[in-house]
Design a protein around this nucleic acid. Structure first.
Length: 88
DNA sequence: TAGTTGACCGGAA
DNA sequence: ATTCCGGCCAACT
């Protein structure tokens, strides 16, 4: 039984290139559909290069936040990976 | 232990 | 369509 944040990191790292997942989706896959907010709390602190946190977006389709150069860098990365981004 | 914070979500006004 | 409010969860102080 690993910690919730361990599972979250695994789930996020499992996101295929060119594919995005919502925080709620990641939370649900980690085992807590309602822990979408906690995902942000975890990611914000535990950012490591093996975790493509930039592929995690909000349910609205907006990129959300990013601690690695701001939302702009995140959007740029997604665009680079040809991820299906939604126009806010 | 308890209280505050925050990369969120969904519903109501 | 946009803005406001409450709720839910994990981490930090």
């Amino acid at each position: 039984m690993k910690s919730f944040r361990e599972r979250v990191l695994v789930v996020v790292s499992s996101i295929p290139k060119g594919h995005t997942a919502t925080y709620a989706q990641v939370a649900a896959k980690a085992g807590n559909p309602k822990a979408a907010r906690a995902i942000g709390t975890i990611m914000r602190k535990n950012f490591n290069p093996l975790i493509p946190c930039h592929r995690v977006v909000r349910s609205d389709g907006t990129v959300g936040e990013y601690n690695r150069g701001g939302p702009g860098a995140k959007t740029k990365l997604l665009h680079t990976e040809s991820a299906t981004l939604r126009h806010s």
